[in-house]
Design a binder for these strands. Structure first.
Lengths: 201, 201
DNA sequence: CAATTCCCTTCACATTTGCGAATAAATATA
DNA sequence: TATATTTATTCGCAAATGTGAAGGGAATTG
């Protein structure tokens, strides 16, 4: 339950797919909350249930999987810029959220983060009450699907150097925002290998 | 426009997510068609637009990407068994379908295939006319998302041998249905490497 | 300002995986 | 049945990638 104006960044994003009417906007404002998270805060722990979605308003976040040896593998980055699509706006383990499974990733803030928080109960209520919201969710799911399709297809069909070149072309803002250490595992390679690829043009 | 009874395999699958009412079932039967495709038929060519979805009723299919050297990399398998979830039932390049992009994969039949054919126009019409259908599509998109999430996460975080063990555990029916040559590239490895992994238990 | 931490790079070496060729078994075809 | 074709395996070597160690520079901290 927050003022409608506070949700404006969220409505702006919704408008990429559907135009929310006044009732829907009010309904959303009534069923979310505003949170400020400090730097280096853990939003979600590996293995824990995930019943929340954070819509990033400002700040940086990162999710990661911890492998058998204790190394972390970056799964995704979270931030809100004009370029960013759904891929980077919603900090959650959406698969765990949908299936009520233990989360396979942890999510941490890298800076102070301002976000809108939606619980699973709130999301389900919004889908139930607003056709516009349900339609938007369908399109959001399509968008999330396409991002994952691209990720899987890239990992399956492209070599490490080509995956890096693709990132330079399509997500070069990530290079300015996050360390190469994080970028490397996001691409599925070791930091030293990324360094090697970068030095060979 | 086909008899409602003919759509029964499709309704059966829908029931995993929603219960279609009589009107929706009639609407679907009125906006699809039944096709039989011969063995080794190409449903979709790489680079072509994808404006169709085939719901597999019987038979086997396979999609693949052709890399720079001419080798094919298996993207997915298509068939209809009691175990199969959405992952294997819909033969289409769903990303290209949604975005009106050139298709990144080709799809071929490996045996004679019986399928229900939905054009993009028909799908959009069904979404427009039936709330049940739109709700089902939202859940189908969720399911497609989760399958892609799993594919990307597996490719990013697991080594080749572990990916094979995961397939043995979770999709062992694929081993009975498709050649190791296809399975190997589906796992992102060379056929000889799969052979090596299998020989080491 | 000095000390520390973090990030990036490079090197040498180990491991994994890819690739071409050869072979044999299984299957399909004539 | 005889002959192709496909499929699976193995081998040796090449290429790609991972790993640990070392060092330098930038940024942060006291």
């Amino acid at each position: 339950m927050i003022p409608v104006e506070t949700c404006e960044p969220f409505f702006n994003y919704m408008r990429k797919f559907v135009e929310p009417d006044t009732d829907t906007m009010q309904l959303i404002a009534d069923h979310t909350s505003e949170v400020t998270l400090p730097e280096k805060h853990l939003l979600l722990l590996e293995g824990n249930p995930c019943d929340k979605i954070y819509f990033i308003v400002s700040g940086l976040g990162r999710s990661y999987y911890t492998d058998f040896s204790g190394k972390t593998i970056t799964w995704n980055f979270y931030f809100n810029t004009p370029e960013s699509i759904s891929k980077n706006l919603f900090a959650t383990d959406y698969r765990a959220f949908l299936q009520n499974n233990p989360s396979s990733i942890a999510i941490e803030t890298l800076t102070e983060v301002n976000a809108l928080l939606f619980t699973k109960t709130q999301v389900n209520y919004l889908i139930e009450k607003s056709l516009i919201y349900e339609r938007w969710m369908r399109k959001l799911n399509e968008s999330a699907f396409m991002n994952m399709y691209d990720r899987a297809f890239t990992l399956l069909t492209m070599a490490a150097a080509d995956r890096y070149q693709k990132l330079v072309k399509e997500e070069s803002h990530l290079l300015q925002m996050f360390s190469n250490y994080y970028i490397a595992s996001y691409l599925g390679i070791a930091p030293q290998s990324l360094s090697r690829i970068r030095s060979q043009h």
